[in-house]
């Protein structure tokens, strides 16, 4: 079984910051907007390098989305930065009308997604954002799993013409995907080959899925781990090919199972290849204060939860 090494834990938001810094040098049309969270979003370096292309809008996210939409008129490629909660639910109608329906080339970059935001608690921990954003026609939805992938995704979305939601997080997590990888929007990444169960994971749950697959292997279960970084458009083909072989699937995400990756996968399976599926996701709940590790454990978003789901789904075959 192919194994992966953590080359040093880093936060995914720093991957975004590194990508944005590189974009600033590469593409003079890239502009960045932030709603009073420049440090948290790791946009400082871009701001320092290109003060004329950095726009501090203050604590006014609705205005930020509108300004970003307007800046595309004249050829700019705006990257907005704030927490996932304030990037989506707070400004849904602005995104819907001024960005998505208007077909504007805005990149909505959202940090601190999910419960791993930690101690700030449920007011800041959005678990509904993937659902909100994937429902918008024409919106591309990406949730990256580590520093290197987030940096690569940040570079890739600048080359894509159309609105994008890029979701990443706050805590330091294992960095295990290749440096300077090519990021293909909408293309799943097969991490391990297996025959008994498919595990598709997104965001922080990808490393947990790899950890789970090692433990499962010890008990004789062969898991195929697939990283779905792009939830929309979904790589239906990769999912169907894998499930055709394994006959069952576990989906894993740091999100409510209503509206999440799991439901998107269920749609693909029910239409093409019905198969048992188990969901590792939050169960229609808000989060709470705690450390990221405590919260992942309490809300069933870790390797142990994935192992349990894998055994359950195999038994249902």
């Amino acid at each position: 079984m192919k194994t992966y090494t953590n080359t040093g834990s880093k936060d995914t938001r720093s991957g975004f910051g590194a990508g944005l810094t590189e974009l600033g040098k590469r593409n003079e049309n890239v502009v960045a907007l932030c709603a009073d969270l420049t440090g948290s979003l790791k946009m400082d370096e871009f701001m320092a390098n290109h003060p004329e292309r950095f726009f501090q809008v203050g604590i006014a996210e609705a205005n930020m989305m509108g300004i970003a939409a307007g800046m595309t008129i004249g050829g700019k490629i705006p990257f907005t930065g704030t927490f996932a909660n304030f990037s989506t639910g707070r400004v849904y109608d602005q995104i819907r009308q001024s960005i998505a329906y208007s077909g504007k080339n805005v990149k909505i970059c959202a940090s601190h997604a999910g419960v791993t935001l930690g101690e700030d608690g449920a007011t800041h921990q959005i678990l509904e954002d993937i659902g909100l954003m994937k429902m918008l026609p024409g919106m591309t939805v990406i949730n990256t799993c580590d520093f290197n992938q987030t940096k690569a995704a940040t570079l890739a979305i600048a080359e894509h013409n159309g609105p994008v939601y890029l979701r990443f997080g706050r805590p330091k997590v294992p960095n295990f995907t290749p440096e300077n990888q090519e990021f293909k929007i909408g293309k799943a990444v097969q991490l391990t080959e297996g025959t008994d169960v498919t595990i598709v994971a997104t965001g922080h749950l990808v490393w947990e899925a790899l950890e789970a697959s090692k433990v499962l292997a010890d008990s004789g279960i062969s898991a195929e781990v697939i990283n779905i970084h792009t939830i929309k458009p979904l790589d239906d083909k990769a999912i169907l090919e894998s499930v055709s072989k394994t006959g069952c699937i576990v989906t894993a995400e740091e999100h409510n199972y209503y509206g999440g990756l799991g439901e998107s996968v269920a749609r693909v399976l029910s239409q093409n290849h019905p198969a048992p599926q188990e969901f590792v996701a939050t169960n229609d709940t808000f989060g709470e204060s705690g450390t990221p590790a405590q919260l992942m454990d309490k809300y069933g978003l870790n390797s142990a939860a994935i192992q349990k789901a894998a055994k359950t789904v195999i038994a249902r075959k």
Partner: peptide, 14 residues
């Protein structure tokens, strides 16, 4: 209520 922000964005772009 959204047009003012959009207009400002276009003004920044100009």
């Amino acid at each position: 209520g959204q047009g003012m922000s959009v207009a400002i964005g276009a003004a920044e772009s100009k």
